[in-house]
Amino acid sequence: MSKIQVSFKLNGKDVDVLVEPRDLLIHVLREQLQSTGSHIGCETSHCGACTVDIDGESIKSCTVLAVQAQGAELITVEGLAQNGELHPLQQAFMDEHGLQCGFCTPGMLVRGYRFLQENPDPSEDEIRYAMAGNLCRCTGYQNIIKSIQKAAVDMKTANATSAE
């Protein structure tokens, strides 16, 4: 099969990669770009372990072709920490025991990262609704909700401090 060059930004860096038309984005990320943080759990876009951020939207990369990422800005779990500093959501997952086996965690974080920009002050119900596309088998979700709530508070405090 003839290959196509696809160019996009991955976690702030320009990336060029040759792909087959049928290659799924998750496979290109994991197998060609060594970005193995995003995981494959179901192949039917139900579990959300493969969630990445594409141009400001949470997208399940197991049901997107790599060619569809042409020109896009992608953020994966590897891109959440900035300058060696964890994102407040990453820190909150640690503080509130928001993960166990860690397999769903990258997708949870990437989705939560976008959600907190969409809704910086969410209620528990809003979190449950907005995160429902990401499955977890270990935590029973409760501590993930607490993590997101904590990150929301921490981010607000940080914003208030930096605005002073």
Binding site: R30, V77, Q90, G102
Partner: peptide, 21 residues
């Protein structure tokens, strides 16, 4: 105490079998 395993998982640095190449 907070978990020792978390730093690698929250940064996408776990090593699951499908990550082995």
């Amino acid at each position: 105490r907070k978990r020792k395993e978390d730093p690698r998982f929250i940064q996408g640095k776990g090593l699951y079998v499908d990550d082995v190449k």
